[in-house]
């Protein structure tokens, strides 16, 4: 019994109700509203965060770019693992991300959609993310996981704990919301609202966010098409 107690004390393998939720270390999100909303006041460090998103183009990466910009500006290294498409550096730079501190790990070339290798690529992505997290030399590791089992996610969660102060975030598809997950924080993003599915401590519910708009670009009068025109397609 004594040794069991010791084990629980020394290793954060099991979350216990009496653990104070504010012990969680966090990284600022770059948005005051989001900071206030998230339990702990920012993106949690040293544990896995899951972000369920409806897909590319929903502003899912813009949610995180302020935090990435902040970390890279502080000289920290960040990595994107298995992004679904090639990230476009001019937009990242415009969002303030320092490209020299950013690494892209794409186990399969994003352009190739070989179905047979899909599963393999997922495994390689998990492995790569785990290595990056365990090393503790990357401050943020963002990984895209179209398919992942709870066991694989648990490995990531453990790797994030081993790495210490690393912000681990896994993008997963929307339909995985009802699957069980070992992630410490699960968020659902639906282009406008950020909803907490699971967290340590009390659940703050959901937050309405303005989808970050791309820089405005006023069309000149003589251009052939006006804004807000419905395409005739």
């Amino acid at each position: 019994m004594h040794s069991l107690d010791q084990l629980l004390q020394s290793q954060p393998l099991l979350w216990r109700g009496n653990k104070h939720p504010t012990a969680q270390r966090t990284a600022p999100t770059g948005s005051a509203a989001l900071d206030a909303f998230l339990p702990g006041g920012g993106w949690p460090l040293g544990s896995l965060t899951e972000l369920l998103s409806p897909g590319t183009g929903s502003g899912e990466l813009s949610l995180l770019t302020p935090a990435l910009a902040r970390e890279t500006a502080c000289g920290e290294r960040v990595a994107l693992v298995a992004p679904p498409l090639p990230p476009y550096p001019p937009a990242l730079a415009a969002a303030g991300v320092l490209l020299s501190r950013l690494w892209i790990i794409s186990p399969e070339p994003p352009a190739s959609h070989a179905k047979t290798k899909g599963n393999n690529s997922g495994k390689e992505a998990l492995w790569a993310a785990e290595q990056l997290l365990r090393s503790g030399t990357f401050k943020a590791v963002l990984v895209w996981l179209p398919q992942a089992t709870p066991t694989q996610l648990r490995r990531l969660q453990l790797a994030a704990e081993t790495g210490g102060s690393c912000w681990a975030l896994a993008y997963r598809p929307e339909h995985t919301a009802d699957q069980s997950s070992p992630a410490a924080l699960r968020l659902q993003w639906d282009k406008r609202h950020l909803r907490v599915l699971k967290c340590r401590g009390s659940n703050p519910g959901q937050l309405q966010l303005q989808q970050p708009a791309p820089p405005a670009h006023t069309p000149a009068h003589h251009w052939p098409r006006a804004a807000n025109e419905q395409l005739p397609l």
Binding site: T56, G57, L61, S62, T65, P83, P84, L85, P86, P87, Y88, P90, A91, L92, A93, A94, A95, L98, L99, S100, P110, A111, P214, P215, A216, H217, T218, P219, W223, R225, A226, A227, N228, E229, Q230, L231, L233
Partner: peptide, 29 residues
């Protein structure tokens, strides 16, 4: 680090453009 222009640029860029889906609403441009 080159200074990016204050123009809308997407975070994801397709390597090869492909035909756009139907029913899009143009926002700016």
């Amino acid at each position: 680090e080159a200074t990016p222009l204050p123009l809308p640029r997407p975070l994801w860029l397709l390597e090869q453009p492909r035909p756009a889906p139907t029913g899009l609403l143009l926002e700016s441009g």
